[in-house]
Design a protein around this nucleic acid. Sequence first.
DNA 1: ACCTAATTGATAATAATTATCATTTGCAAT
DNA 2: ATTGCAAATGATAATTATTATCAATTAGGT
Lengths: 148, 148
Amino acid sequence: MFESYHQILKRNRYKVTPQRKAILEVLDNTRGMHFTAEEIYNQVKKTNPQIGIATVYRTLELLVRLEIVYKSSFDEGRHRYEFYEGDRHFHHHFLCNKCGVIIEVEEDYLCQLEGVLEERGFMISNHNLRLYGLCPACHRKEKHPETR
Amino acid sequence: MFESYHQILKRNRYKVTPQRKAILEVLDNTRGMHFTAEEIYNQVKKTNPQIGIATVYRTLELLVRLEIVYKSSFDEGRHRYEFYEGDRHFHHHFLCNKCGVIIEVEEDYLCQLEGVLEERGFMISNHNLRLYGLCPACHRKEKHPETR
DNA sequence: ACCTAATTGATAATAATTATCATTTGCAAT
DNA sequence: ATTGCAAATGATAATTATTATCAATTAGGT
């Protein structure tokens, strides 16, 4: 599981450096999270205190190019990175307006919409859906407020 | 149609300045377009050469707060703004990987997905879908290359 | 162990956006 | 119509995320 990333780097003639291994390890240990470059930098510094943030940015860009990592913008003025789980279509994101949690949504009901567009001559290669609202926890609290 | 924005500003105790009017006018004249703050600034300068870019940013933020304008990120490292057409759900965007055109997609087949999530306790208030691929023009060219 | 091109870390540069602040102005009250 | 003042503006400095530069280091083939 971890060796495979080693292989992908080698296959593409990239060197397997301790920095790259450390960044991949952080990403591997935080599957399901959506971290910014700076958050990843802070994690990696725990094991590699000498690492520079430029290396983190460079490595993340490399991993994005190799389609190991997915980069997305949630309109916060910075990007977030996560392991690319490798389906043809990326999963969706739900963002809670209240607590800010980002929850992954696996369902894919967009085929129908894509079908309509492809009939019209589009060629859809990927999509990115963001859903906004209240997550179950916040929605419950809104209906049954405990405090205040 | 234009007077109504005047009313929204007044109702919310914001002053109706020439700068705000000019920015609204540009947005009104470019419905369907997705402009960056700088592009809007350049447009507005044609009629209001003295305007500062800070005012453009401030006014756009104000219009976003008033839900007159929608702000979205297409992962280019800057934001784009457009009139909010006021449906409960925002329309979708198709982005051509080749020519970069942004085409609006009106179909809404997400109700089904949202239904599943609401059964699970989520409360969905909005969504934002980006589709990537080739627009009909580029897709045709790819199949029948004329030049090169 | 050596060679060399790739990689790194430090840091300068850039680009978009936000904050500051003195000046100006819309508009409500007179 | 005039005035007073909070709100808004323009110029520009500051900030923030990201990218570029470059000398020093290093992975990995020989």
